[in-house]
Amino acid sequence: MSNPVAKIIDRHLKIWNARHAAERITGIPLTYAEDVVIGEPAAWFSGFAGIELAIKTVQAQMPEMELAVTGPIQTTGEVSTYTWALAGKDGNPVVKGRDVITVKHERIISRYVFFDT
Protein backbone atom coordinates (compact mmCIF):
# COMPACT_ATOMS: atom_id res chain seq x y z
CA MET A 1 0.00 0.00 0.00
CA SER A 2 2.30 2.77 -1.25
CA ASN A 3 -0.49 5.32 -1.78
CA PRO A 4 -0.29 7.77 1.19
CA VAL A 5 -4.09 8.28 1.17
CA ALA A 6 -4.59 4.50 1.26
CA LYS A 7 -2.43 4.35 4.39
CA ILE A 8 -4.51 7.07 6.03
CA ILE A 9 -7.74 5.27 5.11
CA ASP A 10 -6.31 2.04 6.51
CA ARG A 11 -5.61 3.80 9.84
CA HIS A 12 -9.11 5.32 9.72
CA LEU A 13 -10.73 1.88 9.31
CA LYS A 14 -8.63 0.36 12.10
CA ILE A 15 -9.87 3.10 14.43
CA TRP A 16 -13.52 2.57 13.44
CA ASN A 17 -13.17 -1.20 13.86
CA ALA A 18 -11.35 -0.98 17.24
CA ARG A 19 -13.53 -2.23 20.10
CA HIS A 20 -11.48 -0.65 22.88
CA ALA A 21 -11.64 3.11 23.46
CA ALA A 22 -7.95 3.23 24.40
CA GLU A 23 -6.97 1.96 20.93
CA ARG A 24 -9.18 4.53 19.24
CA ILE A 25 -8.04 7.42 21.41
CA THR A 26 -4.40 6.63 20.61
CA GLY A 27 -5.03 6.50 16.84
CA ILE A 28 -7.43 9.42 16.44
CA PRO A 29 -4.85 12.26 16.72
CA LEU A 30 -2.54 10.45 14.28
CA THR A 31 -5.26 10.14 11.66
CA TYR A 32 -7.58 13.15 12.01
CA ALA A 33 -7.10 16.90 12.28
CA GLU A 34 -8.07 18.31 15.66
CA ASP A 35 -10.98 20.21 14.08
CA VAL A 36 -12.12 17.36 11.80
CA VAL A 37 -15.73 17.40 10.61
CA ILE A 38 -17.75 14.26 9.93
CA GLY A 39 -20.98 14.71 8.01
CA GLU A 40 -23.46 11.85 8.01
CA PRO A 41 -27.04 11.99 6.73
CA ALA A 42 -28.52 11.94 10.24
CA ALA A 43 -25.79 13.71 12.26
CA TRP A 44 -22.69 15.89 12.18
CA PHE A 45 -19.69 15.38 14.43
CA SER A 46 -16.56 17.44 14.97
CA GLY A 47 -13.24 17.16 16.72
CA PHE A 48 -11.64 14.18 18.41
CA ALA A 49 -14.55 13.79 20.88
CA GLY A 50 -16.99 13.84 17.98
CA ILE A 51 -15.18 11.00 16.23
CA GLU A 52 -15.21 8.90 19.39
CA LEU A 53 -18.94 9.59 19.84
CA ALA A 54 -19.68 8.67 16.21
CA ILE A 55 -17.78 5.38 16.53
CA LYS A 56 -19.40 4.46 19.85
CA THR A 57 -22.83 5.19 18.36
CA VAL A 58 -22.26 2.95 15.32
CA GLN A 59 -20.75 0.16 17.42
CA ALA A 60 -23.69 0.28 19.87
CA GLN A 61 -26.18 0.03 16.99
CA MET A 62 -24.25 -2.67 15.11
CA PRO A 63 -21.98 -4.60 17.48
CA GLU A 64 -19.34 -6.90 15.98
CA MET A 65 -19.59 -5.26 12.57
CA GLU A 66 -16.42 -4.53 10.59
CA LEU A 67 -15.92 -1.67 8.16
CA ALA A 68 -13.93 -2.40 4.97
CA VAL A 69 -13.09 -0.61 1.71
CA THR A 70 -14.83 -2.33 -1.22
CA GLY A 71 -13.55 -0.43 -4.23
CA PRO A 72 -10.66 1.66 -5.52
CA ILE A 73 -9.62 4.86 -3.78
CA GLN A 74 -9.91 7.80 -6.16
CA THR A 75 -8.02 11.01 -5.41
CA THR A 76 -8.06 14.48 -6.92
CA GLY A 77 -5.88 16.96 -5.06
CA GLU A 78 -6.73 16.78 -1.37
CA VAL A 79 -10.09 15.03 -1.92
CA SER A 80 -10.48 11.25 -2.05
CA THR A 81 -13.45 8.93 -2.31
CA TYR A 82 -13.99 5.19 -1.89
CA THR A 83 -16.79 2.72 -1.35
CA TRP A 84 -17.13 0.69 1.83
CA ALA A 85 -19.28 -1.96 3.49
CA LEU A 86 -20.13 -2.63 7.11
CA ALA A 87 -20.48 -6.39 7.52
CA GLY A 88 -20.97 -8.96 10.26
CA LYS A 89 -18.80 -11.97 10.98
CA ASP A 90 -20.52 -13.85 8.14
CA GLY A 91 -19.18 -11.26 5.68
CA ASN A 92 -22.61 -10.17 4.49
CA PRO A 93 -22.85 -6.36 4.28
CA VAL A 94 -25.52 -4.72 6.39
CA VAL A 95 -24.76 -1.22 5.15
CA LYS A 96 -22.85 -0.01 2.09
CA GLY A 97 -21.81 3.47 1.17
CA ARG A 98 -19.23 5.94 -0.03
CA ASP A 99 -16.97 8.29 1.89
CA VAL A 100 -15.58 11.52 0.56
CA ILE A 101 -12.59 12.69 2.61
CA THR A 102 -10.29 15.66 2.52
CA VAL A 103 -6.71 15.03 3.63
CA LYS A 104 -4.24 17.74 4.55
CA HIS A 105 -0.84 17.24 6.19
CA GLU A 106 -1.49 13.46 6.34
CA ARG A 107 -4.63 13.94 8.47
CA ILE A 108 -8.31 13.67 7.57
CA ILE A 109 -9.85 17.12 7.92
CA SER A 110 -13.33 16.19 6.70
CA ARG A 111 -15.30 13.04 5.99
CA TYR A 112 -18.72 12.98 4.35
CA VAL A 113 -20.67 9.73 4.41
CA PHE A 114 -23.22 8.65 1.80
CA PHE A 115 -25.26 5.47 2.37
CA ASP A 116 -26.27 3.15 -0.48
CA THR A 117 -28.50 0.91 1.63
Rank of each mutant, 00 (worst) to 15 (best):
P29V: 10
P29I: 10
L30H: 09
L30I: 02
L30N: 08
T31W: 02
T31L: 07
T31A: 04
T31G: 08
Y32A: 05
A33M: 10
E34T: 13
E34N: 13
E34I: 09
V36K: 00
V36Q: 01
V37F: 02
V37N: 05
V37Y: 01
V37T: 14
I38R: 04
I38E: 06
I38C: 05
G39F: 04
G39V: 11
E40M: 07
E40V: 03
E40H: 04
P41G: 09
A42F: 03
A42L: 06
A43S: 10
W44Y: 10
W44M: 10
F45I: 04
F45D: 04
S46A: 05
S46E: 11
S46P: 01
S46C: 02
S46L: 01
G47M: 03
G47R: 04
F48K: 04
G50Y: 02
G50A: 10
G50N: 11
E52L: 01
E52N: 03
L53N: 12
L53I: 11
A54Y: 01
I55V: 14
I55H: 00
K56H: 12
K56I: 08
T57G: 05
T57L: 09
T57S: 11
V58Q: 10
V58H: 07
V58L: 13
V58G: 02
Q59G: 08
Q59R: 15
Q59Y: 08
A60M: 11
A60T: 15
Q61K: 14
M62I: 14
M62T: 12
M62Q: 12
P63Q: 05
P63T: 05
E64F: 11
E64A: 15
M65E: 10
M65Y: 06
M65W: 02
E66M: 15
L67R: 13
A68Q: 15
A68E: 15
A68I: 12
V69P: 00
V69A: 03
T70Y: 04
T70M: 06
G71R: 09
G71F: 08
P72W: 03
P72G: 03
I73L: 13
Q74P: 01
Q74K: 12
Q74A: 11
T75G: 04
T75K: 11
T76R: 14
G77E: 09
G77Y: 07
G77K: 11
E78C: 04
E78T: 14
S80F: 03
